[in-house]
Design a protein around this nucleic acid. Structure first.
Lengths: 126, 126, 126, 126
DNA sequence: GTGGTCTAGACCACA
DNA sequence: GTGGTCTAGACCACG
């Protein structure tokens, strides 16, 4: 389900994080569903278990998953406390990137369209 | 004018880059204006000259500044070839961030407002 | 495998770059093959690790190699996005050089032969 | 007649060299024609005389011009001794660049066309 | 072990 | 004076 690309530039744990995040965001992994164990995933990706562990830990800090000792890792619901912090961070990035795009001549209508499309995609998905 | 924060996850040269980029984007540094010399800036930020040099070099590659041997570094005009590649990268980031924000429950109207405000700010500036 | 010449006008990192590029172009280093580590190469060339690092980084930007943190540097496949930009640059140089050679009296047939031979060499190689 | 572009990346003396070389190659400056004096050119380009001096010196070494003490600098004829060394250098560059272009997938016919066109241009010019 | 970043200080080329 | 390159040696992040 997750594709690792060594040529990607991003480190392995970042790619695993991004991959899982995408599965969660797109609803393929549902709330409270159990994630593969660290060992399982490390085997199936032929990757060091430490690397998977780290991805899980960071996803937990960002509020996407929660871990239950002795049981495993599970998909969190959106209303976790941490997700607010994450949102603030993302909004900050959004502002910075849009400022630069605006400076580089991206038209407002183009920017609006990009946002528009993402929200439309999501509505169709649900 | 530039604040370095050693606790910030970003590396020093990235922070310098971001700071200068902001000054350029916001029009505080005008086209063809001379930037502080590598040595000057390194002293005023109490940072190694190599680190400033690196930030300058990367800004040059991104098309924000140009360097003249023996004279100094200067703000480039925005119509440089490189800026297209940069724009594509930024649009990609914009999409990814908005997707995650959408998932985390940011309302479409809020997202639109953020974009709206940035473009309004800029118009007033000009 | 790589010869450094301090009398050569080019800087050290440029010579390292050119040397590696040649090995890649001539197929001596195959796609996804691992390059010597930064430290190894720096020792075997009796050169500072930073200098090798720089050569590697620039080769990465030009799309000849890719780097994986904690693992090493590897030969990229030639179908990278960057290579188009590189091609354009090279064609421009080709034009400029040929113009000057033409002026200096190089016969068209001689120029054609040079090109011809290079392409023949390559065909035999494959 | 010569355009200096501080954003060019190349150093000033290189640009002056390239500019004069082009004028000579294109026959705008004829054999044994006198070049502007160092002082004249430095004034008209608003550039340091040392910089012009250096360009002239290097053009002389490459066999494009010759200098007569107390009189000035003049366009050389093509058959100067030095021009052979220059030709060898250029052929070497030509080979290197073509090799890389070949590797990057430039078709032989495209390469041939580029050469072809340059020689045709020149014939028309004469 | 690997690559990546930073510091300290030197030297060269350019204008 | 300027930018550009290099060395020596340190520290961190990654797997």
């Amino acid at each position: 389900m997750i594709n690792l690309d060594y040529k990607d530039g991003r480190s392995i744990h970042e790619q695993i994080e991004a991959g899982l995040k995408e599965l969660i965001i797109n609803g393929i992994l549902k709330t409270d569903e159990q994630l593969p164990s660290v060992r399982e995933l490390s085997v199936s990706l032929t990757v060091n278990p430490n690397t998977v562990q780290r991805a899980y830990k960071e996803l937990e800090q960002e509020g996407f998953i929660y871990s239950v000792k002795g049981k495993g890792n599970f998909v969190a619901s959106l209303s976790r406390a941490n997700s607010e912090r994450r949102r603030d961070e993302l909004v900050e990035s959004l502002v910075e990137i849009t400022r630069e795009l605006c400076f580089l001549g991206l038209e407002k209508t183009e920017a609006m369209n990009i946002i528009e499309n993402i929200y439309s995609e999501r509505e169709e998905m649900l």
